[in-house]
Design a binder for these strands. Structure first.
Length: 663
RNA sequence: GUUCCCGUAGCUCAAUUGGAUAGAGCAGCGGAUUUCUAAUCCGCAGGUUGAGGGUUCGAUUCCCCCCGGGAACGCCA
């Protein structure tokens, strides 16, 4: 399989756990993603190297405290750096404005700052520092050049592993637009954590176990032997879904009719009620028969029937192969595709252990872990327990999640274990983590549910949920195709010089990039509505805008005819324009944006950051010429353009958005 | 009913985690093009940050109480 070049994740079941763990440690040491560790962790350049110690000396605070406080004034006219003096004022028992004045005098007298700093002035309780314009640009661009393409990365996570559980499609249900959030967010978090120096294990926790498998076997057995083979090969998951839908048709009819019957308002007429009852009676025997047959088949799978096991394995593989097409377009990779079925053999020993230790108890015929602490309070409803085994002896997804968490800790020794799943499951994960706590695992606090809001879709004037029973689901590939289709015309219209081949590539990059950007452009907690018109709008807060800015930068560098890197010898102190300073100040913020995106599991912070950078750069390009500048200035501006290009490409890369060189 | 999330310009969202006069995009109006790619840039207009109270030098941010919207709440995933 393409995404498994080292054969690290072999076939399930042919290796034991210890073996897998061993392979994993090998992967950590020699894997394809290995890079040497970063030298420096915090962003640093000549100006800050002078300014921070000077402030620390003047205030008596630590350099870390100063660096953390140092910010930006609200308007660029006020200065390049701002330092709030409240802490210093409190320590010295003077009013903050007086403190600011005192500090301004001290810094003005500091000889180490003289070559770099133009002006230090008190503004109320703030201290505003104006750096000599050329020095600011030189200092920051130099820092980016010296990072050798690694600007924004850090070594914060060196030696630590993050496990990210994301995407997790169900092999019986369509892979639709609702899965987009988890897939894109999870993949971005993986890239962000890698940039921060962590080893990352992306897990596609497939929903590949349960009675649904029985229904699929049943449908498969009923389908034509030749037709089913060609259909499965061609349509993969789509075919399995159709099978699932068809085999469930009678059951679905019964439940729809029963719901109708229960809704008294809808059916007052007794004749109508009778008609419905008859239809239920007609459909029910077939529905029940299929249900019994499916459960029987699933039971046989659970008991280890080799023929069914083989078929199950085939469905899994075919589904994954099929999904990989969409994953490839989205730039998504997984290190593991251990789904629910993978944990099945671990469940019985786990349950036995939990019972023996008394963590799990019997309740209403089921085996559960209680979620209430202490004695029940009168008048207070008791919390529902975490169910491990139903009264019919079958396990449920929570049991497998518990086994999965234990397995991941044992195999990967994770520093963090993340679940990128929508907000509706937040109680489930709270219970899961609490169950781990009750088992005595202190690492339960390293587990987090990275919840995101529910996406709805706007078709015409109506807003529909994505996961309704009634409406048709839009398969993911269809969404991507539609986006690319819309973009194709725009590409043609905007740039007629592109060859047909290039235009097609650009359309793919921009169409897919637009949707990837769109879902990451807001904080993940908020619910939002997918709007075709807005998502494909080439103007404004969009992926295409960022990609376009990047393409412009590339174009300028191309047309300069300069050898890449030849601008490294440029005199960067010639960059004294306010628009240049604004760009450089935006560039300076990149490492912090990446770090925060990791800390908060929030890729949108990178999206917002890139927008700021693009807008500063656009402003610069509009006001100043690069290629028409005098030779020395031209070289310095090329260095600036190249730094912007690098950060845009890198930031877009973290988000999973392609950055074509022209469009 | 209990628990969790959300509420900021007409719309979609920001706000350096408690900092200075709350900022962008879309939509509206007005400008800038012999384009280093106008898929751009600039200007105007748009606000009692759902309401009220509290904490302090300072609150969109933290605490309390309401109002409104969403979600989850015992054997589905």
């Amino acid at each position: 399989m393409a995404r498994d070049p080292l054969g690290f994740f072999g076939r399930r079941g042919d290796q034991d756990d210890a073996h897998r763990g061993e392979r994993f440690r090998f992967f950590l040491r020699h894997g394809c993603c290995y890079k040497p560790p970063m030298k420096s962790d915090t962003p640093n350049h000549q100006v800050l190297q002078a300014l921070v110690p000077a402030l620390a000396k003047a205030t008596g605070l630590s350099t870390d405290a100063v660096a953390a406080q140092l910010g930006r004034p609200p308007k660029p006219e006020m200065g390049d750096y701002a330092f709030p003096c409240f802490a210093y004022a409190k320590a010295n028992k003077v009013p903050p404005p007086a403190a600011a004045s005192q500090l301004a005098e001290k810094l003005a007298a500091d000889a180490t700052l003289a070559p770099l700093v133009q002006k230090v002035e008190a503004a109320g309780p703030f201290l505003n520092v104006r750096v000599k314009p050329g020095e600011l640009c030189a200092s920051i661009i130099r820092m980016i050049e010296e990072a050798e393409g690694r600007f924004g990365e850090s070594a914060a996570g060196a030696g630590k592993t993050v496990v990210i559980d994301f995407s997790g499609p169900n092999i019986a249900k369509p892979f639709h637009v609702g899965h987009l959030m988890s897939t894109i967010l999870g993949a971005s978090l993986g890239r962000v954590f890698r940039a921060l120096g962590y080893a990352v294990v992306g897990v596609n926790h497939l929903g590949d176990w349960g009675v649904q498998c029985g229904f699929q076997f049943l449908a498969w057995q009923r389908a034509g032997p030749v037709e089913r083979e060609t259909q499965l090969a061609e349509r993969g998951l789509d075919y399995l879904c159709d099978l699932y839908v068809d085999i469930n048709a009678p059951a679905r009819e019964v439940s729809v009719l029963e719901a109708e019957l229960a809704d008294k308002e809808a059916v007052v007429n007794p004749e109508e009620r009778e008609r419905i009852k008859k239809r239920i009676a007609a459909a029910k025997p077939e529905a029940d028969a299929r249900d019994v047959a499916a459960r029987e088949l699933f039971k046989r799978l659970e008991d280890g029937d080799p023929e069914l096991k083989q078929l199950w394995e085939r469905f899994r593989k075919e589904t994954l192969r099929y999904l990989q097409k969409s994953y490839d377009r989205l730039g998504v990779k997984f290190e593991s595709d251990a789904g629910e079925g993978f944990y099945e053999p671990q469940l019985k020993p786990l349950l036995a252990e939990l019972q023996a230790s008394g963590v799990a108890v019997a309740s209403e015929g089921a085996l559960v872990i209680p979620m209430d602490d202490g004695p029940p309070k009168p008048g207070k409803e008791r919390k529902p327990p975490f169910i491990l085994r139903k009264s019919d002896e079958a396990t449920i997804y929570g049991t497998r999640d518990l086994a999965a968490a234990l397995y991941r800790k044992k195999t990967y020794g994770f520093h963090k274990n993340l679940y990128v799943v929508d907000v509706r499951q937040s109680t489930h994960f709270q219970m899961l983590f609490k169950a781990l706590a009750k088992m005595g695992h202190a690492w339960h606090k390293d587990c987090s549910h990275v919840a995101f809001g529910i996406m709805q879709i706007k078709e015409g004037d109506t807003v529909l949920p994505m996961t309704t029973r009634g409406g048709r689901m839009i398969p993911l590939y269809e969404l991507l195709d539609r986006m690319v289709q819309i973009v194709r015309d725009i590409v043609r219209e905007k740039n007629r010089d592109l060859s047909a081949d290039k235009a097609a590539q650009v359309a793919e990059a921009v169409g897919v990039g637009a949707i990837i950007y769109w879902v990451q452009a807001r904080r993940r907690a908020s619910n939002f509505v997918f709007d075709w018109r807005q998502a494909t709008d080439p103007n404004g807060d969009t992926g295409p805008y960022l990609q376009y800015t990047h393409a412009r930068a590339c174009s300028i560098l191309r047309k300069s005819q300069a050898q890449p890197g030849s601008w490294r010898t440029a005199d960067l102190r010639l960059l004294v324009e306010p628009e240049e300073a604004a760009v450089v100040k935006a560039l300076e913020g990149f490492p912090a944006a990446v770090r925060r995106a990791g800390d908060e599991y929030e890729p949108s912070l990178i999206a917002t950051y890139l927008l700021d950078l693009s807008s500063a750069f656009g402003n610069f390009l509009n006001k100043h010429r690069v290629l028409d500048s005098p030779p020395a200035l031209r070289q310095a501006r090329l260095a600036l353009v190249d730094a912007v290009r690098e950060v845009l490409a890198k930031g877009l890369g973290l988000l999973g958005v392609a950055a074509p060189g022209e469009m």
